[in-house]
Design a protein around this nucleic acid. Structure first.
Length: 700
DNA sequence: TATGCGTAGT
């Protein structure tokens, strides 16, 4: 009897111990302390299903999706919550097919399961499949499930479907109304939002959604007058407007609002701090940081990254050393600062000194090595990285592609189990950057056979390939696809289309695209000017330039490259000299090598070789291959062997691996009767293992 | 004590 009672007591004590540990485990997981959660989990002598479920969602929250899956597969007793949590985790990371496979295999489905699956498809943009799941849900469908579907419709721009379902569902709640509203406000559809807001059942979230909508569209006047109408704004309302002022660069208004806030939580302080970091001298931000009564890891990360961006790396490091708790994000911010300034070794010391690294930290170090051109180290880290995400893979692909090592880029791309749009874009733009235009278009074709959808970046790269190949019919097909995919109003895509039509000699169509564009930016104007320039229509290019000025768009360095090359192509020497003068004196732009190359070309074509050479000698920056190339071309044209030889020598110093430079030098020497030097130039092609020009490297 | 649908900050 006594023994049985004792066992009962021990069992009850054990159960309550598990209960307490589970609670602590959940708390740790929710406050982002994954390492501590894992230590507790490992140390627990007894675990129940709740323990496993808590650990599973902790892993999922930190993106450790594969570890979560391993835990799920190995756990002793799975209940419906375990299945739901695992499906939600897969859904959060875009692994729609895996989520569906589990959903189909799970023994018992509750309303959570159906909601997760609807939300999974809806967030991935697959609204028909989401609706199919909702329709197949047996019995009375829960409100959350309807809400997930409404949110999906609304966020994907299908407002009419969202409204229809909202009217049809039996018991809409505040979340239903707000889901529909959120779709409108987050798409910038503020006219419809205002109308809908008038009619709907509202709570504070609805008011805040509207406020955020005005802020997002940049209409700060509407936002502040709307804010004035909120009866008792909560902290979120205040912070939303505060953030709006900061985003609009209105730091004084932001500070004024901040000072009027009845209560300031840590988010409010962080928004204000971030405003100072981006809009004021860093000392202002530091002052506010010292005043902050409450700080969290985001505050520390914000100030440290601000200091790092301002180049105050020592101050950032000192501050980091003062931190009493471990913050991976703050350390990553400092690492990033070092890497931006090519101080890879300092960054690496921080990295090596950290006991835990999250995915962002690994990716920062890897992409930093890539940016510093240290690809071997990037690759070593990539190989050591335990939980590579899409960013890690894509960084390595883009890194090798930019370095001209397309075979390695493609090798990594082929090893990926799953790819996203960025993976394809990295490969396609890599081919374009390496002048392998046919390969770029071929991969676009392969991409279209799969499930990843092309975005503006894909189209921009492919259009550049078309422009370079001057394949007008492919350009037109891409134009059609752009219209059908809804990306046609992206200024990026429009700009690429202008260049493509212009490079294919269809300047009228380029002009038409330009005229139809809803959002013209500086790049659009530059593309059109450049288009006229490359078609030899200098006068038209100048006319566009004047129109641009009249529209209050301030020309930039790229504009002047276009306008100067227009002048040089059209032989407009006086105009070219005038624009070069205007650029430096009126617009106070510093000429870069490309501008000098245009000017050398301009003067050179007109036979003013000495003036061109004087310009080169007077350059504030090192002349690059383009400048010497332009001079060489002009010398060749006007048969100035001496100057040609000088230019060719400089050129071969700058581009020692480009065969055409040696061929030119050899020919020039031969023409001048200097046979020895001609022979020497030819010999160096073999000696230096000179590559074929990249244009010939790809497919034929 | 673990899982789903709507609002603020890196």
């Amino acid at each position: 009897m006594a023994a049985a009672a004792a066992t009962k007591v021990t069992a009850a004590a054990a159960a309550s111990a598990v209960f307490r540990s589970n609670k602590e485990l959940t708390r740790l997981a929710r406050s982002g302390q994954l390492a501590a959660a894992r230590r507790l989990f490992d140390a627990m002598p007894l675990r129940n299903t709740v323990t496993y479920n808590a650990m599973l969602s902790a892993l999922a929250r930190h993106g450790r999706i594969d570890e979560a899956r391993a835990l799920f597969d190995g756990m002793p007793g799975r209940n419906t919550v375990s299945w739901n949590a695992m499906i939600a985790a897969l859904s959060d990371h875009g692994r729609v097919a895996d989520a569906r496979s589990l959903f189909d295999r799970m023994p018992v489905r509750d309303e959570f399961s159906w909601t997760v699956m609807v939300s999974c498809y809806a967030r991935g943009g697959d609204l028909e499949l989401a609706r199919d799941v909702l329709d197949r849900m047996p019995g009375d469908k829960c409100t959350a499930c309807y809400n997930a579907m409404i949110s999906g419709y609304a966020k994907n721009g299908r407002f009419d479907d969202a409204m229809k379902l909202l009217r049809e569902m039996p018991a809409p709640d505040l979340v239903s109304w707000n889901s529909a509203l959120a779709g409108l406000t987050q798409s910038g559809e503020m006219v419809r939002a205002v109308q809908f807001f008038d009619e709907m059942v509202k709570d504070m979230t609805s008011w805040n959604l509207m406020l955020a909508g005005f802020v997002r569209t940049g209409d700060l006047n509407a936002a502040s007058s709307f804010f004035a109408k909120i009866e008792s704004p909560n902290v979120i309302s205040w912070v939303t407007l505060l953030n709006g002022y900061c985003r609009a660069g209105r730091i004084a208004d932001a500070r004024d609002l901040f000072d009027r806030m009845p209560e300031r939580n840590v988010v409010a302080w962080n928004v204000m701090l971030d405003g100072y970091v981006h809009l004021s001298p860093i000392e202002e931000a530091c002052k506010l940081f010292d005043e902050m009564p409450i700080k969290n890891s985001i505050s520390w990360t914000t100030i440290i990254s601000g200091l790092a961006r301002a180049g105050k790396l020592q101050e950032a490091k000192d501050l980091l050393d003062k931190m009493s708790f471990n913050c991976v994000a703050a350390k990553t911010a400092l690492m990033h600062g070092y890497l931006q300034r090519n101080m890879a070794d300092d960054a690496r010391r921080i990295f090596d000194g950290m006991e835990v690294h999250d995915t962002v930290c690994w990716n920062t170090m890897i992409s930093g090595y890539v940016q510093c051109g240290i690809l071997e180290e990037a690759m070593l880290l990539f190989q050591r990285m335990p939980n590579k995400d899409m960013v890690s893979w894509n960084t390595m692909i883009a890194g090798y592609a930019q370095d001209g090592q397309m075979h390695k880029a493609i090798g990594i791309f082929r090893r990926m189990n799953r790819r996203n749009t960025v993976s394809w874009n990295s490969v396609i733009s890599g081919f374009v950057q390496n002048d392998r235009f046919v390969d770029a278009l071929h991969h676009f074709m392969l991409m279209r056979r799969g499930t990843n959808r092309a975005d503006w970046s894909t189209y921009a790269s492919c259009l550049r390939a078309c422009a370079n190949l001057a394949v007008l019919h492919v350009g037109r097909q891409l134009h059609n696809l752009l219209v059908r995919s809804g990306h046609i109003n992206d200024s990026f895509a429009g700009n690429a289309l202008i260049s493509t039509y212009a490079k294919c000699g269809r300047i009228l169509e380029a002009k038409q695209i330009f005229d139809e564009m809803v959002y013209k930016d500086i790049v659009s104007w530059n593309a059109l000017i450049d288009g006229y320039a490359s078609n030899g229509q200098g006068t038209e290019a100048i006319a566009v330039f004047r129109e641009m000025e009249a529209n209050g768009v301030r020309p930039d360095e790229v504009t002047f490259v276009g306008i100067l090359s227009a002048c040089s192509h059209a032989g407009l020497i006086d105009e070219g000299l005038f624009f070069f003068y205007s650029m430096t004196k009126e617009y106070l732009l510093k000429p870069v090598a490309e501008h000098y190359a245009c000017m050398v070309d301009l003067l050179g074509r007109a036979g003013k070789l000495n003036e061109a050479f004087e310009l080169v000698q007077g350059m504030q920056i090192q002349p690059n291959a383009g400048v010497w190339g332009a001079l060489l071309g002009a010398c060749h044209m006007h048969k100035n062997h001496e100057l040609a030889q000088l230019a060719a020598e400089r050129l071969s110093e700058l581009e020692p691996r480009k065969a055409s430079n040696y061929v030119l030098l050899s020919n020039i020497s031969a023409e001048a009767g200097k046979w020895d030097e001609s022979e020497k130039a030819r010999a160096s092609i073999k000696e230096k293992g000179v590559n074929k020009p990249p244009g010939l490297a790809g497919s034929t």
